[in-house]
Design a protein around this nucleic acid. Structure first.
Lengths: 191, 191
DNA sequence: CCTACCGATCGGTAGG
DNA sequence: CCTACCGATCGGTAGG
């Protein structure tokens, strides 16, 4: 029972993710979702409490993946900042490419959540950016990096990576994208 | 009469731009817009034929601004590619910062347009990216730039710049952002 | 998981 | 630019 319940709910969320990416959260009706799942609209509510609960699951699911990985990178001892930044970038990109549609929802639709989730989510975003920035700041102190404004550069890097969810085509295999981003940005801030 | 008509319609579009940015195209009703403008919902239709016409005006308005500027940059004679790329980046950023909300709609809501606008718009995006990329490719030939994959690098740069519309705060005056982006990316691809 | 339905709201129009 | 309204669709619920 438990297993079936969970997997059906997860299947529902996976289908909703694709629809939210294609048509937006506000542009997707529960009837659209029901049709894609293959049940009647009213039946959705035996799996989820509300439309928004689905959005919350997608957004916080991705936020947790990003945060967990970055925390692992930050915990490394005796690791040059250049290497940490490299790992932070490639890991971030790997999480994106593992689920492009969920990333799109995470990045573009989170604003449709209500309070208190809206505030919690924003805090996570700000916290993530601060942790990411701490790698740049540490690299400036060690002399590995040369950049005037870590706040700016962090935003510029993360904007570029997260923009991946809108790319129409890739010129390389997805698993090579992280390396390409890391090369570009590390060269851009190296001393 | 003509003047008043145009300026009223432009005011309507300006207000719609703010609402579309805040709540999305699908999440903004014509009644929301009417209330913000200060008239009744039905009265909107003496200014615009449909909700989508407003979206078209915003999206193509921005697309044209971006394209016009890039064409000017490409037309420069006896200009090093590094300088052209610098001008392409700072100009693109200047257009974004001049109207952040319109950029957000241009970037996030264009998918809600119907055919044939959808196809026309996509073509413009692809054309813009190709023109932008041609600067990188020319710079490789002259030996100014060193990068393995111009398709990738173009997408990475434009993703970063366009991501500006989601930034919560700036760490510098908006007019300095273009220079900061140009520094980062030119250093990242310089020989 | 379905049927049948709730009140609310949607984009848009007719006629003035 | 307003009033009054159209048919369609929305998120969600009751009862089975």
């Amino acid at each position: 029972m438990g297993v079936t319940e969970i997997s059906r709910k997860e299947r529902l969320i996976a289908i909703a993710t694709d629809l939210f990416k294609a048509n937006g959260y506000a542009g997707t009706s529960m009837r659209d979702l029901a049709a894609a799942v293959g049940i009647e609209a009213g039946s959705l509510y035996s799996h989820v409490r509300s439309k928004e609960e689905i959005l919350q699951a997608i957004c916080f699911g991705m936020a947790n993946k990003f945060m967990r990985h970055l925390d692992q990178v930050l915990a490394r001892k005796d690791c040059p900042c250049t290497e940490k930044l490299h790992a932070a970038i490639t890991g971030h990109v790997a999480i994106i490419t593992a689920d492009i549609n969920a990333t799109s929802v995470f990045w573009n639709e989170w604003k449709y959540m209500q309070e208190p989730w809206l505030t919690d989510f924003s805090k996570m975003q700000i916290e993530y950016e601060a942790k990411f920035r701490s790698v740049l700041e540490a690299g400036i102190k060690t002399g590995e990096f040369c950049l005037a404004d870590p706040v700016f550069t962090t935003s510029a890097i993360l904007s570029s990576l997260n923009g991946l969810q809108k790319w129409r085509t890739y010129s390389m295999p997805p698993e090579d994208l992280g390396q390409a981003f890391a090369n570009l940005f590390i060269k851009g801030i190296k001393t």
